[in-house]
Design a protein around this nucleic acid. Structure first.
Ligand SMILES: [Zn+2]
Ligand SMILES: [Zn+2]
Ligand SMILES: [Zn+2]
Ligand SMILES: [Zn+2]
Lengths: 144, 144
DNA sequence: CGATCATATGATACTTAGTCTCATCTTTTA
DNA sequence: TAAAAGATGAGACTAAGTATCATATGATCG
């Protein structure tokens, strides 16, 4: 089953492939994103890279979003979060207690979603799905 | 099958049931929402109700969101939109061409989503799902 | 190498969506 | 009718992100 996980695309190569220059500031942003846990904010990145301008951070984020190697999570309430995509197509889990973000894939869902098109007026061109959870750690945590 | 569609809750009664006063400004907002097509912005409401303060519009929207009779749609890109909920639990379609928003329910999905919990570490407390489509009207529209 | 031109950067102003504050007004209740 | 609770609205503030534009960087050609 290990072979079924597609290799994660390298954000730097993806940008180059798209004809963008791989400059110092862009490298810094990408290197930091790579070290980050999932579910960080754009402003986090700005603060941790004082040498890179805010505009450049946001511009790089946008390039990566457009290229599909970065996900923007619209949480039900609160600030948007970002997370480098680990696998190609996936969905997210979001712990409503600790805010932890996870990725998952389920081929059954994907198959079902494809068949559901029949019930919808129009042509389906994409979808998004998120699960709100209480994660393992929060379930096991001493109450408080 | 008609009987299977639950009656749409009346936003005004829902607010009263929750212990909020049904004041003039709140009535105005609710009456306008009710006349609106799906997929309007909060600022639309402010502009169309110059007699009601911005803060009150946003406060009323928040109350209705909390009560579950109004949906906030986080579109993949662009401004958030609102839409009065027509049925209890549902998902949205969003036409990527014209921006039209629709609601749908599918019990197969709901059943599947419940079973998928087994594969996810933690307890699922909710979900969100959206389909991006090209709607019937846009498919049939003269090209361009 | 150096000139040239496209591209990228960063400081900063601006925009959008929404919240907060607080003095005033309205409603409820006693 | 007086007091208390709740709601309102003007406007200040915040957070997330975009636009502007002068400067800097880097690729390409001679
Ligand atoms: Zn993702
Ligand atoms: Zn999917
Ligand atoms: Zn809805
Ligand atoms: Zn559902």
């Amino acid at each position: 089953m290990i072979a079924s996980r597609p290799a994660r695309p390298d954000p730097a190569s993806v940008l180059e492939d798209r004809g963008y220059r791989l400059t110092g500031p862009r490298r810094s942003v990408i290197r930091l994103l790579d070290r980050k846990e999932e579910g960080f904010s754009a402003e986090d990145i700005c603060e941790e890279l004082p040498g890179v301008g805010r505009a450049t951070v946001y511009r790089t984020i946008r390039l990566l979003l457009d290229a599909g190697v970065l996900c923007k999570l619209a949480l039900p309430d609160g600030a948007p979060k970002y997370s480098l995509a680990r696998v190609e197509h996936h969905h997210h889990t979001f712990c409503v207690t600790c805010g932890n973000v996870g990725e998952f894939r389920d081929t059954t869902i994907e198959r079902l979603l494809r068949t559901i098109g029949a019930d919808i007026a129009g042509e389906i061109v994409g979808h998004r799905m998120e699960f709100y959870i209480v994660c393992r750690a929060c379930l096991e945590a001493p109450e408080r």
